[in-house]
Nucleic acid binder design. Sequence first.
DNA 1: GTAGGGTTAGCC
DNA 2: GGCTAACCCTAC
Length: 226
Amino acid sequence: MLVALRSSRLLTSHHNADRAFRMEQQQAIYGFLGELQMENYRAREEDVDVWILRLLEEGSVDAANLNDCCLSGDLPAPSPSPDANDNGHVGIYRIDAELLNFNYLTGPRKSGPRGTRKRRTSPWNSMFYTSRKNNSRWTAKEVERLVQGVSKFGVGRWTNLKQNFFKRSIRTAVNLKDKWRNLLKTYQVHKKLHSCILNHRWWNGSGSWQKNNKCSTYRNDDLVIV
DNA sequence: GTAGGGTTAGCC
DNA sequence: GGCTAACCCTAC
């Protein structure tokens, strides 16, 4: 599975008229990713297929609605589906407190919690070591706030996100960007999700939705899963 | 200010 | 030694 972000396009090519609608779509997409990722911390050693199916069954993640968020920059926007709400928008974004109630730091992990790390200050001053600025692992609450922030402001608005969600935090805008990148990276690792999601309705690339596993592309302006 | 490649340190 | 996550560096 390839997940590619095209955030720069998001913020530059959209018409103002549909900007709000597209932002809501974006929120849905990243909320979905956030839920996947955060649950992933808890269920890292579990069968991902079973796990995502459970989420779908519980309704925590609605793959059908997710598909309704799909838009291609090259293809016409699909009509809102019957699953959409009264506004014609989809709203799968939801951070479930139960999903976040996991043992973030002590749960089963391939790599355990990291302690304080140190590094050389510079190649020519290698005799001295100094601590990095933060050296702390992200907490579940921080991840939650990051996902909320990205869902609200979108990817690439790290300074804005910092000011609104991490104002008193040690995390810098760059830290937020890097953490989000790590989250998506981990998300990509679980390729089994691909076949699972493809079993649900999917944009077939030729103007209609279908519910089978023949389609191989999920796409919107900001996210491409191939 | 941001994106993306590079570096580092902890854990297996 | 490999993998991973947090952090650093730098071009744009």
